[in-house]
């Protein structure tokens, strides 16, 4: 059997450092030793394929708990998932979770003094279509404070999780909103060295995704790792 085609290394500056002291929790959680670079084997170049029977989609976060409508500004988030060679990533699971419109997570661990919305839980799961496209309906989340430093506030964001074709293409990230003044102060967003890579996490307002008399639309396109043409050097 021939060797699997490895995934390409990440582009320099495109990924945040694990050692990001401004994000205080990283100080005691980042490894001190450099990771061992390993050539990709079948362990890294294959990954889970989720059956929609076992893992059913839930596209609309505004009605996914009680059947009643959630409070807040309804939005549509849609986009395309491509690999680094521009090929769509079809039929892959996208997980999404977020705070409600007041900036509160429906979770016992969230003690922020902002009201819960009984009709908004804030979690969903969708799959890309054959062309790598996905779409969710949700509520624009609120900003919320966090204990990182004095007067620390997370910019408005939605958490996203992607799988792609392999263990090596796994990605967990956050989508931000255009024009958010909190972005400049956020150590998590600013941990990404390359400003262009940072800016690609900011969704774009999109009139084509906006639905008349229904919801504003935002485009959030994502790129997962592509496979290299030549085997990675061990």
């Amino acid at each position: 059997m021939s060797d699997p085609i490895p995934f390409r290394p990440y582009a320099p500056g495109s990924q945040p450092s694990l050692d990001t002291p401004d994000y205080v929790t990283t100080r005691k959680r980042h490894p001190l030793r450099a990771p061992i670079k390993i050539p990709h084997t079948v362990t890294e170049t294959t990954g889970p394929v989720f059956s929609q029977t076992h893992f059913p989609p839930s596209v609309d976060l505004t009605i996914n708990t009680t059947g009643q409508k959630a409070l807040g500004e309804r939005i549509v988030v849609a986009g395309t998932i491509l690999d680094e060679d521009g090929r769509p990533v079809p039929h892959t699971m996208v997980e999404v979770w977020q705070a409600n419109a007041t900036g509160r997570y429906d979770h016992p661990g969230d003690q922020h003094d902002a009201p819960l919305d009984p009709n908004f839980h804030g979690a969903g799961r969708v799959y890309t279509d054959a062309n790598g496209r996905y779409r969710i309906v949700t509520i624009r989340p609120g900003a919320y404070p966090w204990p990182n430093h004095h007067n620390a506030w997370r910019p408005t964001h939605i958490h996203f999780s992607y799988f792609g074709p392999a263990f090596a293409s796994r990605l967990v990230t956050q989508m931000y909103f255009p024009g958010d003044p909190l972005l400049a102060f956020d150590p998590i967003f600013n941990a990404i060295p390359d400003t262009r890579a940072r800016d690609r996490l900011i969704a774009a307002f999109d009139m084509d995704i906006t639905e008349a008399d229904y919801a504003l639309g935002y485009r959030f396109d994502v790129v997962l790792r592509g496979r290299g043409a030549t085997p990675m050097e061990a």
Binding site: Y10, A11, S14, Q15, P16, Y23, H54, L82, D83, E84, D85, G86, E95, W97, Y105, D106, H107, G109, D110, H121, G122, A123, H159, S161, L171, V172, T173, Q174, I188, F189, I192, A197, R198, R200, L201, V222, V223, L224, R225, G226
Partner: peptide, 28 residues
């Protein structure tokens, strides 16, 4: 050619882990 999207922390991952079944790969 595109560049892979940046990672961000999963955070306290409030909702991602709610389905405890995922811890048992033999459940099917």
């Amino acid at each position: 050619m595109g560049i892979a999207t940046a990672s961000q922390t999963i955070g306290p991952y409030w909702h991602l882990i709610e389905d405890k079944d995922w811890a048992d790969l033999t459940r099917f």
